[in-house]
Structure formats: structure tokens, C-alpha cells
Amino acid sequence: MRHDHLITSKQLSRSDVETVLDRAAEIDADPVAVADRHAGTLLGLLFFEPSTRTKMSFETAMKRLGGDVVDMGAVESSSVTKGETLADTVRVIEGYADALVLRHPKQGSATMASEFVDVPLLNAGDGAGHHPTQTLLDLYTIRKNAGLDDLTIGIMGDLKYGRTVHSLAYALTNFDARQHFISPESLQLPREVVYDLHQAGNGSGVREHESLEDVLPSLDVLYVTRIQRERFPDESEYQKVAGEYQIDLETLERASDDLTVMHPLPRVDEIAPEIDDTEYAAYFEQAHNGVPVRMALLDLFLSANGGGADE
């Protein structure tokens, strides 16, 4: 890895991804070995919108490496409400911490913030933009359960606004995966994303569908995302559409026995609880994988040869 910052999964080559996943696997196997590796290191947490899960996962990861965190706290109580720019905020917090984690509602915020700081900055979600640490934990989970070679994956739900989906799709172009995108027409992948997937040379591996039925039997992984109520003009329209993209054991009768079902969580009713105890379910494991993967990322970016030179 020769990157100063982690902004988008698009910046990651196949070998970058493999470096992170390999390191995560080592840490997963023997977490005690790295328990003091970054003693004295401080990670700055800048969450401009609430995300308890991602924040706790980063905090856990830093502490399990022997370091600690400094947290900007809620936006309401910070100087942001006094009209401070993000550029100023990151330049101030940079002085307190050895690396920064940023979540911000505006697209491109992580790119911009990274231009103002010298410490490594990890993007933990920039509006409808990117969420690369989620992508890496997704890839880690896929690799453990289904393997990344010769993969056929179905990604279903809100593909228009779901940044986890976009980030994952970009990253999978490194692995020649066959990607099926399943969504209502109104929530299809943005054309920008389709354009990029074609640019990445994976155009032939990308297929869009309105129904899961036809592709389900061919899938190694089914990645389900939530369709949000606020995307629809009224409740009845939402119920009608969302209902078609929910899965239960009956839906999965036509699936391969080896199918892995994933979800970035939290779920509402996209995946019936009856699936939780089956071999299909990998979504809780996926959430747990956030810690070793973020430990691996922090370790790589905080180590001299990881976060040092530019590409």
C-alpha cells in the first residue's frame, strides 16, 4: 500500500486490497500479537453525522492496537455550528491526532479534507459518495465465505443512494467478478457508477435486473441493502416495491446451498429473521469483521511504509 489517505475504493488496486485482507486475517488469527503495536497513538474521530456502529468499530480497532481516540463529539456541540469550515476543522484536529477518520454528509468531503492535512485520513463515508472501509470488510467477508476468485454476486436493494454498493462494485472490478444488480427501476445504479464500472473494463461483467428470481440460482453471494421509506412518495408505493426485495427461507429455496447472504446492517425487514440461524447468514460475522479490517488499515496507514510515500 502506497497511499497517503484512504478516500475511495477506486484508488485500491487488487494488490492493495489483498494486502489489507491478508493483514486483517493475520490480526484476526492472533489479535494479542498486535495489542501494543500502536501504543500511544491517537486517532481523531470526526463524525459530522451520526454513525454509532462505524465509530465504535474504529474506536475498538484503535484501542485493540494499543492506541486511543480523541472524538470531536456531536456536531451540535462543536465549533461547526459556529460556521467553521471543514477545511479549518481538520487542520485543527490534525494537531491532536496521528490519523483522522472522517464521516461527513457532503460528497467529496474526504477528498477535500485530505488536501488540507498531512496525517493519514480515512474516509468513513462522504454523503452519497464512498465508504471504502465498509467495502474492505465486505471483501474480507466475501473472501472468507465464498472466495474472491470466479465470484458471482447479486447486489440488491437501493442501488441508487447506497454508497456501500457503489464502493463494493468498484472494488470488485479488480477481481473479474460477475456482478448482478437487482433493484426497482427507480433505484438503479447511478449512470456515473455504471460508466465507471465500464471504464474499469468490467462492463461485460455487469448486469442489471428488476427481479432476483432469474439470477438467484447462479449466485455465490447475495448482498442485500435496505430500501428506505423516504425514497418513495407515499407509504403504499413503498410497501409494494420494498416487498419485492425482501428475502425469507422460501425465497432462498432456489438458491445454491453454498449461498452467502450479506447485509451492511442495520436491517429492517429485508432479511427475515428465520434466515439468521442458517448457513446462508453472514451479516453478523460481516459486522464483526469491521474490527480486524479497520485494525489492519490503521496498522498499514500508521506504519512508516504504509502511510508514508505517495504513489
Binding site: T85, L86, A87, H104, P105, K106, Q107, G108, S109, T111, M112, E115, D126, G127, A128
Partner: peptide, 10 residues
């Protein structure tokens, strides 16, 4: 939704 429309020094 772009950060460049937010009055940042960019």
C-alpha cells in the same frame, strides 16, 4: 450535495 458548494476554501 458536493462539498465544493459549501463555502469551503477549495
Amino acid at each position: 450535495g458536493c462539498i465544493t458548494t459549501e463555502g469551503e476554501p477549495v
